[in-house]
Amino acid sequence: MKKEFKVTPIQNGTVIDHITEGMALKVLKILHITGTGKSIVSVAMNVPSEKCEMKDIVKVEDRELEPRELDKIALIAPNATVSFIRDMEIVKKHRVNLPDMVDGILRCSNPNCISNKSEPVEYKAVVTNRDPLTLKCYYCDREQEDVVGNII
């Protein structure tokens, strides 16, 4: 039987697989993929999966994303895997690994934090626990609420 692909394989680029269902658009936001570049970006949401019930997938053609940037998506998709594709072959696999300090992609959930005012700083948060994920604002020390909702 001919295998049917919901999202077709790519020649060159980056495939982010096993994204927590419903989080693909947030992943694009974290990676600053806005669709204004030249790369073809494919997004599949709520795809049936063997590992988990449902997953999202993002494919970015002709662009290999930086592993350090990709690690930030572990904030919302801790089980995501990243494959780098060249000539339709996987040349490298990377499992996202959340760094100890997350910067620039969130705003502090404390509205009275100085990082939410007009100061020339990027928000920084310290990862205090990985499972379940807890973050503490580097500036105000507050534990962060609603991490997904506070992605910039």
Binding site: V121, Y138, Y139, C140
Partner: peptide
Amino acid sequence: QEGSARLAAEFSSKPVINAGDGAG
């Protein structure tokens, strides 16, 4: 504002002492 002393410390080469930052 909470966190202001930590921010000030980033921009100062001299020691910063926090004398109270909001409810922090």
